[in-house]
Simulated assay, not measured.
Amino acid sequence: MTVTTLSPIDARAEIEAGARLVDIRDPDEHARERIGGAINLPLARLHDLPQDGRPVVFHCRSGMRTAANATQLAAAAGHAPAYILEGGIDAWRRAGYATVADRSQPLEIMRQVQITAGSLVILGVLLGLFVGHAFFGLSAFVGGGLIFAGTTGWCGMAHLLQWMPWNRRAAA
Rank of each mutant, 00 (worst) to 15 (best):
T2D: 09
E108D: 08
A19G: 06
L123G: 05
L107Y: 12
T151V: 14
R45M: 12
H159K: 13
E14T: 06
F148H: 14
P27S: 12
G88T: 09
D23T: 01
S104M: 01
F141Q: 03
P165A: 04
A149Q: 14
R169S: 12
G118Q: 12
L73R: 06
F148V: 14
I89G: 02
S139P: 00
G128F: 13
H133T: 08
A158M: 14
N69Q: 14
D23A: 00
R169G: 14
E33D: 14
F141P: 01
R168I: 01
A134H: 00
L41P: 02
V100K: 03
T5V: 05
E29D: 12
Q114Y: 01
L138D: 08
G144A: 15
Q51T: 01
H30W: 15
D23G: 00
R111K: 15
L21I: 06
W92M: 03
A31R: 06
V142N: 01
G128T: 13
L21C: 02
G124H: 05
F130M: 11
G53Q: 07
G36E: 14
Q162L: 05
L126K: 12
Y97V: 05
I24K: 08
T152Q: 05
M64R: 12
N167H: 00
F136A: 05
T152I: 06
L43D: 11
V131M: 07
L161C: 04
G124S: 04
A75N: 07
V56T: 04
R103S: 08
L146I: 09
I35N: 11
A11C: 07
I15P: 05
P55Q: 03
H79D: 13
F136K: 02
N167L: 00
G124L: 11
H47K: 08
A140P: 07
T5P: 02
L49A: 04
I35L: 06
Y83E: 08
S139K: 01
L107N: 04
R25D: 09
V57A: 04
T152P: 05
A80H: 09
E14Y: 03
V113G: 15
E16S: 10
V56K: 07
Q114G: 06
L146Q: 12
G143T: 10
M110I: 08
L123D: 08
Q72I: 13
E14R: 15
L73G: 02
L120A: 15
I39S: 04
A13C: 03
M1V: 08
R94A: 14
M1Q: 06
A13M: 03
I109T: 15
A67N: 14
G153W: 04
V22M: 01
A38T: 10
G78W: 08
R20P: 04
